[in-house]
């Protein structure tokens, strides 16, 4: 198991403390993000997901508890905050609304420029980041002339250009058609595979969270309700449903099948796994 790169310790966040609107969004969250892993964070609206990820690069400060980047408190000094901002990249929901430059190139270059890199290095990074998300051809275009899916990829490239060691994405596939979803997921995975960066995907869609995550964390009412491998999490379908979430369709199907007397080995949560399990059953049947 890899060592953690980013950790939260007893992280608590209270909005509007001391007012009638006081709300505890996070309550004692211990979270570990390990080097090079893909972590899925799931939870219903209002479970604290967005508050949590904004702590990961010091956009907001804990009410109590700490966030540690390789053991160092990211809120301890201005330089620690600056380091966290470049090493932990955050892609917000609907990031395409944050594009603002005249050209795609300038938009992607914004982050690396702020890191005070040399012009050559900035150029290299812009082109590399554009390559990861497949927008090399669009660098001279205005971001506002692009399709929704293209805009989103440009926005992600803007964060990738900072070469973060932890890439955090909040609902990266929301509102895209199935083709667009696949492309974005492939882009994110290619960054992960080529750089070894840790990737954190925040989502409420179980299927996409399931497909490539090494580990999953379920947030509920500002606390970590479950944590483990996807198959461990999805085996607890009833609990997930009570939290306003859902198990993947294939997990539900395998539960229904079991109730109807068709036993499948292990936990199944993707179409591929289910097809393989059923084909094995079919093969066994042929021999019987």
């Amino acid at each position: 198991m890899n060592e953690p790169i980013l950790k939260t310790e007893n992280l608590t966040h209270v909005y509007s403390p001391g007012t009638p609107f006081e709300m505890t969004a996070l309550n004692g969250v211990d979270l570990e993000i390990r080097k090079g892993e893909i972590l899925g964070i799931i939870g219903h609206t209002g479970s604290g997901k967005s508050t949590l990820i904004q702590h990961l690069n010091a956009l907001i400060k804990p009410t109590s508890g700490r966030v540690l980047l390789e053991g160092r408190d990211i809120n301890e000094s201005k330089s620690a905050i600056r380091q966290a901002r470049s090493r932990v990249g955050l892609v917000f929901q609907y990031p395409e609304y944050q594009l603002f430059e005249e050209t795609v190139y300038k938009d992607i270059a914004f982050g690396p420029k702020n890191m005070k890199l040399s012009p050559e290095e900035i150029d290299r990074r812009v082109r590399e980041a554009a390559g990861f998300v497949g927008v090399e051809e669009l660098l001279d275009r205005s971001p506002f002339d692009l399709s929704g899916g293209q805009k989103r990829r440009v926005a992600i490239a803007g964060v990738i250009a900072m070469m973060p060691e932890v890439l955090v994405l909040d609902e990266p596939m929301a509102g895209l058609d199935p083709g667009g979803c696949r492309e974005i997921m492939d882009n994110i995975l290619s960054y992960h595979d080529k750089t070894g960066a840790a990737v954190v995907v925040v989502t409420h869609s179980m299927e996409e969270a399931a497909r490539r995550a090494d580990r999953m964390v379920v947030l509920n009412h500002g606390t970590v309700a479950m944590s483990g491998a996807p198959e461990e999490i999805f085996a607890r379908g009833d609990e997930l449903r009570k939290m306003g979430l859902a198990a993947p369709v294939m997990t539900e199907l395998s539960q229904r099948l079991r109730a109807l007397g068709v036993e499948l080995p292990g936990t199944v949560y993707t179409v591929e796994q289910m097809a393989a399990a059923l084909l094995e059953l079919e093969g066994g049947r042929g021999r019987a």
Binding site: P178, G179, G180, E207, V249, L253, V271, L278, L279, E282
Partner: peptide, 20 residues
């Protein structure tokens, strides 16, 4: 057309491709 089908249909389609 860049679309998909419900997972349950996709599963059956995969199985049928393999002769089930």
């Amino acid at each position: 057309l860049g679309l998909t089908v419900p997972d349950t249909v996709k599963l059956m389609w995969e199985l049928r491709q393999k002769g089930v």
